[in-house]
Lab assay of single mutants.
Amino acid sequence: SDEELKKRIEELVRRGNKDEARKLAENANSDEARKWWEKLEQL
């Protein structure tokens, strides 16, 4: 689900694993996940 995906992306970003988070968001084929990633990346 998008919610689970967003949690995983956020967790990866928090751990400093941005590349992994980006790949996850891009491969998810989910606009919501991509937007979430872009938002987190700004922080």
Rank of each mutant, 00 (worst) to 15 (best):
L5S: 01
E26V: 06
E38R: 06
N27S: 14
E41G: 07
E4Y: 11
E32K: 06
R34P: 01
S1C: 14
R14C: 10
S30T: 11
A25V: 15
N17H: 14
K39S: 11
K35Q: 11
E10N: 05
E38M: 09
A28E: 03
E41Q: 15
A25I: 15
R14W: 04
L12I: 01
G16W: 01
E32Q: 08
R22D: 02
A21H: 00
E41H: 11
L24I: 06
A25P: 00
D2I: 15
L5R: 02
E11T: 04
S1Y: 13
E38H: 06
L43T: 09
L24R: 00
K39E: 12
D31W: 06
R15M: 13
L43E: 13
G16Y: 01
L43G: 08
K39C: 12
K23S: 08
E26G: 04
S1M: 15
I9S: 00
N29M: 12
L12A: 06
V13I: 14
N29G: 13
D2R: 10
L5E: 01
E3T: 10
A21N: 00
E3P: 09
E11Y: 05
S1I: 14
K35T: 10
E32L: 09
K6H: 07
D2S: 11
E3R: 08
I9F: 05
A28D: 03
R22N: 02
D31P: 10
E3C: 15
D19Q: 09
N17V: 03
E4D: 12
K18D: 05
K23F: 06
L5M: 06
W37V: 13
W37H: 02
D19T: 09
E32F: 11
E10K: 07
E11K: 02
A33S: 04
R8K: 10
K18A: 10
S1H: 12
A33F: 15
N29K: 12
A21C: 07
N29Y: 07
E32I: 09
I9D: 00
Q42C: 12
E32R: 05
R15Y: 04
N17C: 15
K39T: 10
E26W: 07
K6D: 01
D31R: 05
E32G: 06
W36G: 00
Q42D: 06
K39M: 13
K35N: 08
L12T: 01
N17I: 04
K6A: 06
R15D: 06
Q42P: 05
W36I: 07
I9Y: 01
K6T: 04
K23P: 01
E11P: 00
R34T: 05
K35F: 06
A25H: 01
I9H: 01
N29F: 09
N17D: 13
N29D: 12
W36E: 01
Q42T: 09
I9W: 02
D2F: 15
K18R: 14
A21Y: 00
A28F: 15
K39G: 06
R34A: 04
E4W: 14
N17G: 04
S30W: 10
D2E: 12
N29E: 11
L12E: 03
E41W: 14
W37C: 07
G16F: 01
K7L: 10
E20G: 06
A33Y: 11
E26I: 09
K39Y: 14
E41N: 14
A28N: 04
S1A: 11
K18I: 15
W36P: 00
K39H: 13
R22Y: 05
L5Q: 00
E4Q: 10
D19L: 07
A33P: 03
L5N: 01
K23E: 10
E20K: 04
K6M: 15
N17S: 09
E3S: 11
N27Y: 08
E41L: 15
D31N: 06
S30Y: 05
K35C: 11
E41S: 14
E3H: 10
G16E: 01
K23W: 08
D19E: 13
E38S: 06
S1E: 10
V13E: 01
L24H: 01
E32W: 14
V13L: 15
R34Y: 11
K23H: 08
E10S: 08
L12F: 03
L40F: 12
G16R: 02
R8E: 04
E4R: 08
S1Q: 10
D19N: 07
E4K: 07
R22F: 06
E41T: 15
D2H: 11
R8W: 08
A28H: 05
N27M: 14
W37A: 04
L24T: 02
R14L: 12
I9N: 00
W37M: 11
K18P: 09
K18Q: 08
I9C: 07
E4F: 11
D19R: 06
L24S: 02
K18Y: 15
E41V: 15
A33R: 04
R22C: 07
S30A: 04
S1N: 12
S30Q: 04
S30I: 04
E4A: 12
V13S: 02
R34I: 13
K18C: 13
K7M: 10
E38V: 05
A28C: 14
V13N: 02
K23L: 12
E26R: 05
K39P: 01
D19G: 06
N27K: 10
N17E: 14
E11A: 09
K7R: 14
K7V: 06
K35D: 07
E10Y: 09
K7G: 05
D31A: 12
E10M: 14
L12W: 02
E4P: 05
R34H: 04
V13K: 02
E38Q: 08
E32D: 10
N29Q: 12
E41A: 14
L12R: 01
E4H: 08
L24P: 00
L43A: 12
L43D: 10
L24V: 06
A25S: 04
W36F: 14
V13W: 15
E41M: 15
R34G: 02
L5I: 06
S30E: 03
E26S: 06
L5D: 01
E10D: 05
L43R: 08
G16Q: 02
L5C: 06
N27F: 10
S30D: 06
L43V: 08
R8H: 06
E38L: 08
D31F: 08
L5F: 07
K18F: 15
G16K: 02
K39V: 11
R22E: 03
A21W: 02
R14F: 04
E4N: 09
W36D: 00
L24M: 06
D2W: 15
A25W: 11
R8F: 05
L43M: 13
W36Q: 02
Q42S: 12
A33V: 15
K39D: 08
N27L: 13
L43P: 05
W36H: 07
I9R: 01
E20S: 03
L5V: 05
E4I: 09
K39N: 10
L12G: 00
W37D: 00
R34D: 02
R15G: 09
R8L: 13
A28Q: 05
A28P: 02
A25L: 14
N27R: 12
G16P: 00
R15C: 14
R22S: 04
V13A: 03
E20C: 11
E3N: 10
A28K: 02
E11V: 03
L5H: 02
K39R: 13
L43N: 07
E20Y: 03
A25R: 02
K7A: 13
L40W: 08
E26K: 05
S1K: 12
L5W: 13
E11F: 05
S30H: 04
R34M: 14
D2V: 14
L24D: 00
R8D: 02
K6W: 15
W37Y: 14
E38F: 06
L43W: 12
R15E: 10
D2A: 12
S30K: 03
Q42I: 09
N27T: 13
S30F: 09
G16A: 01
A25Y: 06
R22A: 06
E38A: 09
E10V: 09
N27P: 02
D31Q: 07
W36R: 02
E11N: 08
E32A: 11
E4L: 12
E38T: 05
K7N: 09
S1G: 11
K18H: 15
K6I: 14
D2L: 15
N29H: 09
R15N: 12
L40K: 02
W36C: 04
K7P: 00
A33D: 04
K39L: 14
D19S: 08
S1R: 12
E4S: 09
E20N: 02
K6Y: 14
D2C: 14
K39W: 14
R8S: 03
E41P: 03
E3V: 11
L12K: 00
N27A: 14
I9A: 00
R14V: 05
A28G: 05
D31I: 10
A21M: 02
K23N: 07
E26N: 05
L12N: 01
N17L: 15
L12P: 00
S1W: 15
L24Y: 03
E11S: 09
K7F: 09
E20P: 01
L24Q: 02
E3A: 11
R34C: 08
N29S: 10
A33K: 02
K18E: 05
E4G: 07
S30N: 09
R15P: 00
W36S: 01
V13F: 15
E20T: 04
L40M: 11
E32P: 04
L40N: 03
E26A: 08
L43S: 09
Q42R: 11
